[in-house]
């Protein structure tokens, strides 16, 4: 893929990629922007290869997921460095200002999603938010189709239970 074509593809995917980066960063907008920038840099520098085995969308989402995980690990490591307090950032999590602009239904959905295990949350995001199939979600999450199906069913049941519990 030529650099120009790559940039056109990235621009087309930008809203969905930002949503996915937000999901990978637990709703932290600053961390999501940081993750997206690092992912774009990997793609533009050719460090992330798109070999055509999967669609560009699932390949790039995989890059975003891995980059978010790297940044999470890096942040955890910084906390142990002696000078980390000099450049300390607030704790990860949704921005309070953004949380205030959310509707009641969305706020309840996010609160229920946070309580799910990471894998279940990722698969549900990919299927319901990004409209991917379970097979594509498995590709992005780097797990087998059977495992993705299990996470999907368990996650869906747990999410429904939590949302119904909130309603009562």
């Amino acid at each position: 893929m030529s650099p120009e074509a790559l940039e056109v593809e990235l621009e087309r995917l930008h809203p969905a990629a930002f949503g996915w980066a937000l999901a990978c960063c637990g709703g932290d907008r600053a961390a999501a922007e940081d993750t997206l920038q690092a992912s774009y840099l990997k793609a533009l520098d050719g460090r992330a290869r798109f070999d055509g085995r999967a669609t560009f969308r699932t390949s790039f989402f995989s890059v975003v997921r891995r980059t978010a995980a790297e940044q999470r690990r890096r942040r955890a490591l910084w906390r142990w460095l002696p000078m980390a307090s000099v450049t300390a950032t607030p704790d990860d999590g949704p921005d309070p200002a953004v949380a205030l602009t959310r509707s009641e239904g969305t706020r309840r959905l996010l609160a229920a999603l946070v309580r799910l295990p990471r894998r279940q949350r990722e698969v549900l995001y990919l299927v319901f938010y990004q409209d991917l199939s379970i097979a594509e979600a498995a590709d992005v999450a780097g797990i087998s189709l059977g495992t993705a199906r299990t996470h999907y069913e368990r996650g869906k049941a747990a999410l429904k239970k939590q949302l119904d519990g909130d309603r009562e």
Binding site: P15, F18, G19, T101, S103, G105, L109, F128, K156
Partner: peptide, 16 residues
């Protein structure tokens, strides 16, 4: 569930 996620996507897009 799909409707709830669609609403979430709409709200996320506002701060894109």
């Amino acid at each position: 569930l799909r409707e709830r996620f669609t609403a979430l996507r709409r709200e996320d897009a506002a701060g894109l």
